[in-house]
Amino acid sequence: MSWIGLKKAINRAGTQVMLKTGHIEQTIDKEFEIEEKRFKQMENNSILLQKRLRSYLESLKLLTNSQLNIGELLNSFYGNEKPDSHILENPNTGESIETFKNLTSEYYATLNKINNETVKDLENPFNQTVLNPIARFNSYYVEVNEAIKKRNNKLLDYDAMKNKLKKLLETPKIELIDQDTKFKELNKELNESETKYMEINNLLKKELPKLINMRIEFFDPSFESFVKIQLRFFNEIYFQMKNLQIKIDAKTKQDYIDGILDDRIDEVLAKMKQLDITGKDEPIE
Rank of each mutant, 00 (worst) to 15 (best):
R136P: 00
L168G: 05
N116D: 08
T93A: 10
P91G: 01
Q179I: 15
S76R: 15
Y140T: 15
F100W: 12
N153C: 13
G94L: 09
E117M: 09
Q179V: 13
Y140K: 14
A160D: 11
L111M: 10
N152E: 14
Y108P: 00
N112V: 03
P91F: 05
A160C: 08
L103R: 13
Y108I: 02
K182H: 12
H86S: 13
H86G: 02
E117S: 12
I114L: 12
L74I: 04
N152F: 02
P133G: 10
G79V: 01
T110M: 08
N102H: 10
E170P: 01
E98S: 12
S85Y: 01
P172C: 11
Y107C: 01
N116Q: 09
T118R: 00
F137I: 15
P83A: 06
T181Q: 07
A109T: 07
L68W: 01
N80E: 15
K154R: 14
K154S: 09
I70D: 00
T93F: 05
T171Y: 02
N80A: 10
E98P: 00
L155H: 04
I177W: 06
L131S: 06
T129R: 08
P83N: 07
E123L: 03
I70Y: 00
N90A: 04
L176A: 04
D159R: 03
E143M: 12
R136S: 07
V119H: 01
N115T: 11
T104Y: 04
D180V: 04
D178F: 14
D157R: 06
T118E: 00
L176K: 13
K150P: 00
A109K: 11
L88V: 07
S76C: 07
G79D: 10
K154M: 14
A109D: 04
E143T: 12
T99Q: 10
D121V: 06
P83G: 13
N115P: 03
V142G: 03
T93R: 09
E117L: 12
L169N: 14
G79S: 12
Q128M: 12
F137T: 04
K182F: 13
N153D: 15
L131K: 01
N75L: 05
I87L: 05
L168A: 05
A147I: 04
K154G: 05
K182D: 10
K150W: 01
D159V: 11
N124G: 00
P83T: 10
I114R: 04
E81F: 02
S105T: 08
G94N: 14
D157K: 06
N145L: 14
A135T: 07
R136G: 00
D159T: 10
I134Y: 06
K149D: 05
N138H: 04
N69R: 05
